[in-house]
Simulated assay, not measured.
Amino acid sequence: MSKILILVGSVRKNGNTELLANAFKQGAEKHNSVEIISVADYKINPCVGCEYCQNSDGNVCAQNDDMKIIYEKLKECDTLVIASPVYFYGISAQLKALIDRLHTPMRNTFSVKNMALLLVAGASLPQVFDSILVQYSLVLSYFKLNDLGKVLVTDVRQKGAIKENKSLLDAYNLGMSIK
């Protein structure tokens, strides 16, 4: 049984990304403990590159925001799922700010061993996910994480459009596959 943390990077409540993450959760919670965090609900400042965390006691960040909550969750989970809308060929700014804040020695205390990726794009271009997939691959390699899978959805711009897409079943099945 895995302890799964899903980080949803969309600010749109009940939007396509959240629906995809919920489908994944429904499948995954059959055999695992699953928590969804909507990054937009937390006050997370971008990294300022001050390097304070490199030398501070416990590698704490100089910024006093909600990132400390996320750090604690990452210490407890063994599987991390990134769910994001695609904005101009990248993940959301809210999620990017969180990811940049993982540039801390504190990451050595995280229990994460596995990752999965859920992406939703309004565009239908075949290359719409390429830059995110390169970054994802580099993160997997650098941290020696297992890739549990990806669900990549194109052409779902309007809120709720994903309900007509087989990707919800794909996300559910990906969640079910984690044991």
Rank of each mutant, 00 (worst) to 15 (best):
G9K: 08
R107K: 12
V8D: 01
K96D: 09
A62L: 15
A23G: 08
M1W: 13
M106H: 08
L80P: 02
L118R: 05
C61W: 14
N108M: 09
P126H: 13
R101M: 02
Y136R: 01
E72G: 06
S111Y: 09
T104C: 15
K13I: 04
I178Y: 09
S137Y: 08
I178G: 08
L148F: 03
K13P: 00
C53S: 11
N55W: 11
L119K: 01
D57K: 09
N146M: 02
G175D: 11
I6L: 06
S167Q: 15
D65P: 08
M67Y: 11
V81T: 01
N16Y: 05
G49M: 05
S167Y: 12
K144H: 11
Y71E: 07
C47H: 07
V34C: 03
S124V: 10
S10M: 06
T79L: 01
N22P: 11
T109F: 14
L145T: 03
M115S: 04
L74W: 11
V39W: 00
I132M: 05
L119I: 04
S124C: 02
Y42S: 04
G49N: 09
Q94K: 12
S131V: 05
D57H: 13
C53Q: 03
P126E: 15
Q127S: 11
G9W: 07
N45H: 10
L145Q: 02
K43C: 10
A123V: 00
N173R: 14
Y136A: 02
G27K: 07
R107T: 10
D170Y: 07
V139F: 07
M115R: 00
G175I: 01
N55E: 07
L98Q: 05
A23F: 09
D130C: 12
V134E: 12
L169R: 14
P126S: 13
